[in-house]
Design a protein around this nucleic acid. Structure first.
Lengths: 349, 349
DNA sequence: TTGTATGCGTTATCAT
DNA sequence: ATGATAACGCATACAA
C-alpha cells in the first residue's frame, strides 16, 4: 500500500498515535475514558484526532470487545399507536446512554418471539427489551438468550429477567371504578382471553372482577369479550357481535385504546350515542384517543417512564452482567385520564 | 487457554474446519455461497456446523468485510401513523433480503437530519433510507454521507441518490378533483408552507392550484393554511383559526391524514357536520382514517410498495456501489380511497 | 476446487 | 501514566 493510498483511507488509531507521538494504547485509553492520563497527553491526542478527522472503527471495537452498544427492541408490531410510541421512547432513552436500537417485530407469533433473540440479531446485540405477547411461563425453557433482558408488559419469565410494567390489576380496577362511579352497571370488557396469570389480560380481568365485586355488581361472563390482536377492528367486531346478540350494556372498557376506539367507532356507526347511551374507556393514552370524538377516557401508563426504566435497567445489566442481587420488577405509575367518552352518567340505558 | 475453556466457548470457523477436515477458507466459502464446492465437502461442512452449533461471528465478518448488513431508516419520528407504518414495511422488506434496520429519528430538525448519517450510526451502516423534512436543496453540500442512500418523500438531493416518492402534484390534484366533483367550491388546504419545489408541500400546492384552475374556481390564498409539524393538533388549530376568522369553506384537504383528522375532530367539536356541511379528505391512508367517524376519504400512497422499492434500490446499491447509470427516481402508485367524509355534495354551505 | 498466510483496527495484558 | 504486543474471528490474495 502506497503512502498516497494510506492518505486517502480513513485514519486508524495507529495514525492518531503516530501524529500525537504516543502509543495506540494511549489513544485507546482516551476514547474509553481512562482516567489516569496527563493533561498534556490528552491534549495532544485530541489535536491529532481533530487534525486527522479520526473516528473510532466500530467494527473493530465490537470484535475485540465483544460488545456492540446495540440493543434490540422486540415487539409484536410497529404499526400500532402504543408500540410506535414505546419504540420512540426507547430509542430516545437509549440514545442518551449511547445505545443504538434495532427494532424487531414478531407479528405476535410465538415462534418468532422465541427466535427473536437468536440468529443474526442475537449475536450482534448486547441485550434486549422484550415484549412478547404469545409466550407463556411454560416457554421459558425454549428461550435461550444468554444476554441481558428486560421484559415489558407481562410477567412471564419471572426470576429470569428484569421486568417493567404497570400494575395490571390496579389499572383495570381503576378503570372499572371510574365507569361504575359514573353510574354504569353493565360494562362490556374487551380483551379478556383464556390465558392465566401472570398474563396481562388475565390480571386486568381480575382487576375488573374486583371492582365489580366491591360495587356489588354481579359478574356477567357474556360481557367478557375475548379477542385476537388488540386492534381497532377487533374492538369493533366484538361490540358488533354483542349488539347483534342482544346483550345489553351501558359501558365498554377496552384493554387498550385501539380496542376502545374500535368499539367507539362501531357505536357511532350504529347511531349509539357516546357517552349518553354507552360510555367508553381504554388503556394506553395514545394520541388517537385524545383526538377521538368524543375524546377517549383512558388510563395512561406512563410509556416514557416505562421506556426509560427499561433502558436504564438494561444498560446496568450490560455494564455489569455479573451483578447478582436477583432481578427487579418495577411497577410503573399510571393515571386516569377522564375525558368526554365517560362523561354524564345515565342509569339503565 | 485449556481445552476445557475452549470447549465452552463459541465455536469458531477454525473449529468447524478442523471438525470437517477442511480449511477455514472452505468453511468461509460455504457461508458466502461460493459456488464451486464439491457436494461431499459441502456435506462435511454442514455436518460440522450442525454438530458444533456454529454461528458465524458477525463482528469479525463486519471488520474484515467492511460491511454490516445493516441499514438505517432516518425519519422525523416513529410515533406517527404514517412513519410507523413505513418503518414496519421497511423492516419487513429489509428482513427478506437479509438486512437489519436501525431506526433513527430526527424530530424533523435540520441539524439532526444532516448529522444522522455521520457519527456512530454512519459508520456501522451500509446505507440508509432517508426521509428528511427540514432539508432544502441548498443543504446538499452539508450532507457528507459516503454511503448508498435512497431518499423517500421529497426530491431534495436530485442527482445525488435514488428517490422513491409519489407524484405529489398528481396526488394532490386527484384529491382536489374528487372534492370538486362532489360539489365543493371553497376548499381549505392544510399543509402548504413557504418552501419551493421540489419540496412535497410545494408540489402538492401546485396540484391543488391546477385542479382549481381546471374547474374554473378562483384561487383564494386565505384558504391555504401553512402549519408546522403535520400532526392532528396542527390540523385542528388551523381549522379553528379559519372558523374564528369567519372565512367560509365547504371542504378541507389535509396534506396528510393526521392534519385531516385533526380538522375533522375540530369540526365535530364545533358541531359542524361532516360531510353534510364540510367534506374532509386526507392523504396517507393510515388506519386512523379507516376508523374515524365518519371514515376518512384519502389518497393511498402504497406505503408497502414505497418501502419495498426503497429497500430493493438500496440493496442493489450496496451490492454494487460502482454501478453507474445515474440515480433513479421511482414514482409510486397512489389510489383514491373514497369514504364517508366526502360523501353527498351540498352546494354553497 | 481447496489450503496457507496475512491483516482488518481495536482492546487487554503485561511490563515499565 | 504510558508503551509494546498479542489476540479477537473472519475474508481474501495467492499458491497449489
Amino acid at each position: 500500500m502506497t503512502e498516497i493510498e494510506r492518505g486517502r483511507m480513513a485514519a486508524t488509531m495507529r495514525d492518531v498515535a503516530q501524529a500525537a507521538g504516543v502509543s495506540v494504547k494511549t489513544v485507546s485509553n482516551y476514547f474509553n475514558g481512562y482516567r489516569y492520563m496527563s493533561a498534556a497527553t490528552r491534549e495532544r491526542v485530541e489535536a491529532a484526532v481533530e487534525q486527522l478527522g479520526y473516528q473510532i472503527n466500530v467494527a473493530a471495537r465490537n470484535l475485540r470487545s465483544g460488545r456492540s452498544r446495540m440493543i434490540a427492541l422486540v415487539i409484536p408490531e410497529l404499526d400500532h399507536p402504543y408500540y410506535s410510541l414505546l419504540a420512540q421512547q426507547v430509542i430516545d432513552a437509549a440514545d442518551e446512554v449511547g445505545l443504538s436500537v434495532l427494532v424487531e417485530t414478531t407479528g405476535g407469533r410465538r415462534d418468532r418471539e422465541l427466535g427473536a433473540l437468536s440468529g443474526v440479531h442475537g449475536q450482534v446485540i448486547d441485550g434486549a427489551i422484550y415484549e412478547p405477547i404469545a409466550l407463556r411461563p411454560a416457554d421459558r425453557g425454549f428461550l435461550d438468550a444468554a444476554m441481558p433482558l428486560v421484559m415489558i408488559g407481562e410477567r412471564v419469565f419471572d426470576g429470569l429477567a428484569d421486568h417493567v410494567l404497570i400494575n395490571d390489576v390496579a389499572a383495570a380496577r381503576t378503570a372499572m371504578e371510574h365507569l361504575i362511579a359514573s353510574g354504569r352497571r353493565r360494562i362490556a370488557v374487551i380483551g379478556t382471553n383464556d390465558a392465566a396469570p401472570p398474563a396481562g389480560a388475565a390480571l386486568r380481568r381480575i382487576g375488573c372482577a374486583e371492582a365489580l365485586d366491591a360495587a356489588g355488581i354481579p359478574f356477567d361472563e357474556r360481557l367478557m369479550l375475548p379477542v385476537g390482536p388488540w386492534h381497532r377492528a377487533a374492538g369493533a367486531e366484538a361490540i358488533a357481535r354483542l349488539i347483534d346478540e342482544g346483550v345489553e350494556f351501558d359501558a365498554v372498557f377496552g384493554f387498550n385504546d385501539a380496542l376502545a376506539l374500535g368499539a367507539q367507532w362501531l357505536l357511532a356507526q350504529r347511531g349509539i350515542r357516546v357517552p349518553e347511551q354507552v360510555a367508553v374507556m381504554g388503556l394506553d393514552d395514545t394520541e388517537d384517543g385524545r383526538f377521538a370524538h368524543p375524546t377517549l377516557t383512558t388510563v395512561s401508563p406512563g410509556v416514557r417512564q416505562i421506556a426509560r426504566t427499561a433502558v436504564e435497567l438494561l444498560a446496568a445489566r450490560i455494564a455489569d452482567p455479573t451483578a447478582a442481587g436477583g432481578f427487579q420488577t418495577v411497577l410503573a405509575d399510571f393515571d386516569l385520564m377522564a375525558r368526554e367518552s365517560t362523561r354524564a352518567a345515565v342509569a339503565g340505558a
